[in-house]
Amino acid sequence: MTITEIKTKLREILENVLDEDILATDFMADSTNLRAWDSLSLVNIFVQTEKAFKIKLPLGKLATLNTMADLLAVIQENQSA
């Protein structure tokens, strides 16, 4: 899966879970701070991500996922693994 395809899928999840009036593309910037979202939404996004990409986010990494770049990286890593 290319980075564009990953971003498209991830954006869909964010649009649904966050359902906010912000341009979804704004969410996709590498610097987006994941921790700015409420914790319920963030957990939901992690769980939906695991399901959509058929991966497991490693337990040890959860606490270090702070930005969109971190999340994209972990998805890519686990996909190729």
Partner: peptide, 13 residues
Amino acid sequence: GADILLRKKILRR
């Protein structure tokens, strides 16, 4: 279940 969680806020609205 997964779909309800995903679209929770939309359903709520």
